[in-house]
Design a protein around this nucleic acid. Structure first.
Lengths: 292, 292
DNA sequence: ACCTGAACACCGTTCAAGT
DNA sequence: ACCTGAACACCGTTCAAGT
C-alpha cells in the first residue's frame, strides 16, 4: 500500500523498446548501408574493412547487437560483460553507454535479434496444413533456442515486444487461427505448444553446451554422468528409473531418443488440439465475463 | 578432436551431488536435530535462539541452504552473493567455502530444496484417476516455480539429480505409468506436460516478480505496459494482435485469463495423451533399434 | 556527436594464517 | 575442525572531461 510513496512519479522501467534510447542510425557518409553479414563466419579478425586500414568499422546498435550475439554464443552469458564486448568492438566499455542505457538493454536487443532467426511459415498459403506449419514453427523455434542457449533465461526476464519477438508471436497466432480451435482456447493451445518447446529447448541447449565445454559427445557425457552416479552407493537404487529419464537404452543414442521424445510430444499436442476442437463443437463455450 | 589434450584426466565437474564436498552433519552436541522450520516466516531477526544469546546458530549445509532460499526469494538472484549470504548468516564470505566448493554448488542445493516443496500425490492409491494426479502434480510444480522465480534458469543449468529432484521425477514417471500410454511414448508425454509447466511457470513467475518490484498489481502493470506501447506510434498497428497474447479483455483480469489458459492447456495435453494411447492400441510401435 | 580515464561499489575465489 | 583478512582479477555504472 505504501508502494508509490518512495518513487513518486517515475514509472518502472519495462523494456528497451519502450524506455530505451531512441535508435539513431549512424551518419558516416562512407558507410555501405546494411552491409552487415548475416551469419557469423567472420569470427576472426575484424580488420581489413573496405578501407584497408585495421581500424574496426564504426559503432552502431546493429553492430553492437550482432557482436553481442556472437560473443554470447561463443563464450556464454557468464563471460559476457560490457568490458569484454567493448574489447571485441575495439573500444572502451563506457562508449557502449552512448548506444544503450544498461546491460539489460543490450541483452534485450540480442534476444530480439535471435527471435528474428526463427523461420516462419508462409502464412498466405491457404492450402497448407496447419499441422505442418505448427510443426515447422516449433522445430525452428527449438533449433534457435538450442543454437543460442543463453536466450531462454532472457525470454523469461524481459517483455519480448521487439520486432523479432512480435514477428514470431504473430506467426504463432496466425497458425493457431487455422486449427479450427475456438477463440476461447487459442491462447491456451499456444501456451501448451510453445511453452513446451521453450522448456525442451532450454534443457537441450544447456546439455549440448555442457558437453561441448567438456569436450565430450552427448553419449560420452551421458555415460560419464551415469558412471559417476553409479559409483555413489546410495544412488544405485534411487536411479533405477531416472536412468530412462535422462538417457538412452537399447542402442539408441541420446540424440535419437531426444528426437523421438520431441516428435512424440508434438504429435501429442496436435492430437490434443484436435480433441479440444471436437469437444468445443459439442459443448457450448462458457459465457464471456461481463465488461466492467 | 584435440579435446582431451589440455585437461588430461580430470573429468568435468557435473554436480554437487557427484563431485561436491561430502555432507558432514554438525557435531555440536547441543543441537536439536532437524529443528529447522520448514516454511519461511522467521524472516525477522535470527537472534534469540534456545540459548538466549544473540549469536546465530552454528553453520551447517541445511541452514546455509535454507537461508539461501529465503534470500533468493526475497531479493532475487541478481542480488544474491556469497558476501550477502554470509552477512545474513553472521559470518564472513570465506567460511561458506568450508561447506561448499563453489557458488554453483550452493545454488544446486537451494534448487533441490525447492524441488522438495512440490507436493506429490499418493502413489499407492490404486483407485485414484491419473488425470487428477497429473493435474495436481502440474499445479503444485507451477506453484513452486512461481513462488521461487529464480529456480527456472537453474533447472536448465544443472543436472537435477538431488533427492528433491528425484522424488519429483519419480512421481511424474509413476503417474505417467498409469495413463495406459505405451512405454515408447511415456517420456515424450512427460516432456510435453512438464516442459510446458516449466515454461508457463517461468513467464508467470517473472511477471509476478516484476509487478511486485514495481509496486503494481498485475492488472496495473499490464495497463502501464500497454499504455506505454500505444504511445509509440509505430507499435499501434503491430500490437493489434499481441494485445490478446499478453493481456485480458472483456473484464477478465490478467490472473483470470492466465488460469483459464493454464487449465485449457492441461486439458489439451490430457486429451492428447488419451488420443495417443488410443492410437498406440491400433498401430504397432516401431521396432526397438538393434543393440550396438 | 561520440568516446575516454578514473573512480565507486561491488563480485567469486585463493591462500596463508589463526583458533 | 572451523573461521578469518588480505589480496587478485574481475564486474556494471557514473561522472567529468576530452575531441
Amino acid at each position: 500500500m505504501a508502494s508509490e510513496a518512495d518513487s513518486p512519479k517515475r514509472p518502472p522501467r519495462t523494456s528497451v523498446w519502450l524506455d530505451g534510447k531512441p535508435v539513431t542510425r549512424p551518419r558516416r557518409a562512407d558507410r555501405t548501408d546494411r552491409a552487415e553479414p548475416a551469419a557469423g563466419d567472420t569470427k576472426g579478425t575484424p580488420t581489413a574493412t573496405r578501407s584497408g586500414t585495421d581500424q574496426p568499422p564504426p559503432l552502431d546498435r546493429d553492430r553492437i547487437t550482432a557482436v553481442s550475439v556472437r560473443l554470447l554464443d561463443a563464450e556464454g552469458s557468464a563471460k559476457f560483460s560490457m568490458r569484454r564486448l567493448a574489447g571485441e568492438l575495439g573500444v572502451t566499455a563506457m562508449s557502449l553507454y552512448w548506444y544503450v542505457d544498461t546491460k539489460d538493454d543490450l541483452l534485450e536487443l540480442a534476444l530480439d535479434a535471435v527471435f528474428g532467426e526463427v523461420r516462419v511459415p508462409d502464412l498466405t498459403d491457404e492450402s497448407a496444413d496447419w499441422r505442418d506449419q505448427l510443426r515447422a514453427l516449433a522445430v525452428s523455434y527449438r533449433t534457435v533456442l538450442v543454437r543460442h542457449p543463453w536466450v531462454t533465461p532472457l525470454i523469461g526476464k524481459y517483455l519480448n515486444i521487439g520486432p523479432g519477438s512480435r514477428a514470431f508471436s504473430s506467426a504463432v497466432l496466425a497458425v493457431m487461427d487455422r486449427t479450427g480451435l475456438a477463440p476461447y482456447g487459442r491462447m491456451g493451445a499456444v501456451s501448451a505448444v510453445f511453452q513446451f518447446v521453450y522448456g525442451f529447448g532450454t534443457i537441450e541447449g544447456h546439455f549440448v553446451q555442457r558437453c561441448a565445454e567438456a569436450g565430450l559427445t552427448q553419449d560420452e557425457y551421458h555415460r560419464h554422468a551415469m558412471g559417476t552416479i553409479h559409483e555413489q552407493p546410495d544412488f544405485k537404487r534411487a536411479f533405477s528409473n531416472t536412468e530412462e529419464l535422462m538417457g538412452a537404452r537399447g542402442g539408441e543414442t541420446v540424440e535419437e531418443k531426444r528426437e523421438r521424445d520431441f516428435t512424440f510430444a508434438l504429435d501429442l499436442m496436435i492430437a490434443g488440439i484436435e480433441a479440444m476442437r471436437e469437444r468445443g463443437r459439442h459443448e457450448t463455450p462458457p459465457p464471456a465475463p461481463a465488461v466492467g
